[in-house]
Amino acid sequence: MKNASRFTMGAIAALFLAASPALAYEAADVKDGGSLSGTITGGPGKAGTIKVTKNDDVCGKMVADESSKVKDNKIEGAVVTIQGIAKGKKADTKPAVIDNAQCVFVPHVQAAMVGSKIDIKNSDPILHNSHAYIGGKITTFNVALPNKGQKVTKPLKKAGLMNVKCDAGHTWMKAWIVVHDSPYYAVTDAKGSFKIDNVPPGKYKVKVWHETLGETEKEVTIAAKGAAKLDAALKK
């Protein structure tokens, strides 16, 4: 009897625990949405190459080092996310894509929304083994793509920073996926610039992250139909 009631309480507690982190994002029409754009700067970058140690007949002798692409102090591949939006624009329903192409992951950096899916592809005629971790340590999926043209779709179940490796001896292969809790994210282009639109007016925390050049957090206010600016300089 006593045990049973303890069990019930436990079950209720478990239900609450299960429910609490699921502040599920809700898609709705955004009234008077504003935008956030800007440029991310910092450095120094390096435009190096990495020596290929396996399958160089397919991969080539060298691959580009994409870990810090900077031109004129402007950072490409920084990820900007607006924090704490639980209700807003509709998320992209198309799955994100990561391709194993000539022994590098394409794209090297991207962002996606939690609960969406990702297509993992192999464009090379060799074994690739896409092993993704969340928080740097915990495997979220590990799939073999032994042949060219294969595609596997996996859900992005948890928000957080995902990194992808290839366990098939291609030690240089690395990719990053920022899995965000809302569709309010952007990755900077070659000019270091980004734009996020259709943001419900309000005051937000904005995070900027780059894999090697550092990260920062800023506050912005986005007015109704306004165009807010956010220029940030990253420091290592």
Partner: peptide, 14 residues
């Protein structure tokens, strides 16, 4: 299933 925590991947999809 693959072996989580190891390089052994899942072949369920391929």
């Amino acid at each position: 299933t693959g072996l989580n925590g190891t390089p052994m991947p899942s072949y369920a999809d391929t």
